[in-house]
């Protein structure tokens, strides 16, 4: 799969962030116990971080040797990045997931999951609303029975008032 010649939009930035992260990890691992002993708690983390740094340098060199992403006239770099990495569906769905996570606590598992499922199916292009609602309700009922009843996993915010 080495046939890919051009860099992906944002690839260089991502690789540099990875390198920066690896360097930070190395420094943080050093701070655990310094070079106190061969068997210190920091030994393996330092080794792992060092491996990361070396690998990241190599990845960065490879990426920098590749030609930059193809420039389409009239498309800015940011737009090219968004098109390749963050298409509308990914952004919308990720936002929905984040909303779902925040709603889990106040609304409880059943309500928030139901809203998420119905909204998610709609956003992803399933326009048969009744069908979506029925499928969501049935699957949630199944999940609820299996987890809460059979496995005594206490799902957040029980059925309660809903």
């Amino acid at each position: 799969m080495t046939s890919r010649k051009r860099r992906l939009p944002g690839e260089l930035v991502f690789v540099l962030v990875a390198l920066l992260f690896a360097l930070t990890a190395l420094w943080q691992s050093y701070r655990i116990a310094g070079l106190a002993s061969w068997s210190s708690p920091g030994a393996v983390p330092m080794l792992a971080a060092l491996v990361m740094v070396v690998a990241a340098i190599r990845i960065a060199l490879t990426a920098s040797r590749r030609p930059p992403p193809a420039q389409v006239p009239g498309v800015t770099r940011a737009a090219a990045f968004a098109q390749a990495l963050l298409p509308r569906a990914v952004v919308a769905f990720t936002l929905l997931i984040v909303l779902y996570m925040f709603a889990l606590d106040p609304l409880g598992f059943v309500v928030s999951s139901f809203l998420f499922l119905v909204a998610g199916m709609w956003v992803l292009g399933s326009r048969r609303l009744v069908h979506n609602v029925v499928v969501s309700a049935l699957s949630l009922a199944a999940i609820y029975v299996v987890f809460q009843t059979a496995f005594s996993v206490v799902l957040p915010g029980v059925l309660g008032a809903c």
Binding site: F109, S113, S139
Partner: peptide, 16 residues
């Protein structure tokens, strides 16, 4: 469009 939201909910419950 139906499967992906369901996988996500299942992942969330499973992790929880």
């Amino acid at each position: 469009a139906i499967l992906l939201p369901l996988i996500l909910v299942l992942s969330a419950v499973g992790t929880y």
